[in-house]
Design a protein around this nucleic acid. Structure first.
Length: 292
RNA sequence: GGGGCUUUAGCCAAGCGGUAAGGCGUGGGUCUGCAACACCCUGAUCACCGGUUCAAAUCCGGUAGGCCCCU
């Protein structure tokens, strides 16, 4: 079977556009690799591919959950693995595009999660105490004391007798990872512009239509482009500040994405040529044909 | 023309004689169930020149920039 094409990179470099062009060339179907696009009604802020684009090429794992529903890496892993089989059995090639590194990695590598385990928050314990409890088990990687979220997660695994040491980076599928990059200044400029564009396209209206769901939605309270509006709806922050904060969070996110894809995947990087995108497409295509 | 205040990292800013807090941004990094998450690391001889002192970002004088008031 031909390699799965994985397109990664920071938000706003042109991943979506590239994925669609490649899908046409390679007779492929696209699996979304972005944790926010999973949700219905989060259209503008998550920069989903347009309906037009989605008609052109089959897209999977977009709009499959309501904003009040939960969806985790584990769900994603199962969905992607199932889809890969389906798509390939149809004789089509698989392209995964997105910026959520953990999701993509968990789907393609030997990440193990256990079905239906109980989950404690350990509210009565301090971070230090959690760390002490963890140290009673043989673990190779310790989170920082300040990182409560990771401490809690790890202790849960240990107490549930789940596996916590893994063979490093065991790939389950043959993949080719295409990373899209560009000059940092240009990227930040594009991110800022894109947020302004989102506002023009009606992000605020989208937010208002979701207003009632805010208190009950995990994704609306954690996804950038949405969570920032919470304070605005409460009347404690101006619209201008809200927009600035979305830009800032998006820039930071982009930076973290670079770090993740640089270190966690065997990424081959390509510089996006915004003036002549066809050239970028050609470069990537050439490389793919060479590789598989 | 005269008088007063001010000048600390890219930005904001503490310090008021004993050898440069902090915040933001930036850059780097971690990553097996909230991941557009959570977390870690990251910088300066204090406008310039001279003086006082064992010791000056801190006191004195001068130069330059900024702000304000008077004429």
């Amino acid at each position: 079977m031909k390699d799965i094409i994985v397109i990664v990179g920071p938000t706003g470099v042109g991943k979506t556009k590239l994925s669609i062009e490649l899908a046409k060339e390679l007779d492929a179907e696209i699996i979304n690799g972005d944790s926010v696009s999973i949700y219905k009604r989060l259209d503008i802020g998550s920069a989903k591919p347009s309906m037009e684009e989605r008609r052109e090429i089959p897209h999977h794992l977009i709009d499959i959950r309501d904003v009040t529903e939960d969806y985790t890496v584990f769900d994603y892993q199962k969905d992607v693995r199932r889809l890969i089989e389906e798509i390939q059995s149809r004789g089509k090639r698989v392209i995964i595009v997105g910026g959520t590194g953990l999701y993509i990695k968990a789907a393609l590598y030997n990440y193990e999660f256990t079905e239906g385990t109980t989950y404690h928050e350990y509210k009565e314990y301090s971070n230090e105490e959690l760390l002490e409890k963890i140290k009673k088990y043989p673990v190779e990687y310790l989170p920082e004391v300040q990182n409560r979220k990771r401490l809690v997660r790890l202790l849960n695994k240990l107490e549930n007798n789940e596996e916590t040491s893994y063979e490093k980076d065991n790939l389950l599928y043959p993949i080719q990872v295409i990373g899209l990059t560009c000059d940092r200044d240009i990227l930040y400029q594009r991110i800022n512009d894109r947020v302004d564009q989102m506002m023009k396209k009606g992000l605020l209206e989208e937010i208002y239509s979701l207003k009632d769901e805010y208190p009950h939605s995990r994704i609306l309270n954690s996804g950038s482009g949405y969570k920032e509006f919470y304070a605005y709806l409460q009347g404690t922050k101006t619209l201008e500040d809200t927009i600035e904060e979305i830009k800032k969070n998006s820039r930071r996110y982009a930076k973290r994405q670079f770090t993740f894809f640089k270190h966690q995947f065997p990424t081959k990087w390509f510089e996006t040529n915004f003036e002549n995108f066809q050239e970028t497409i050609n470069q990537v295509l050439e490389d793919i044909k060479k590789g598989a």
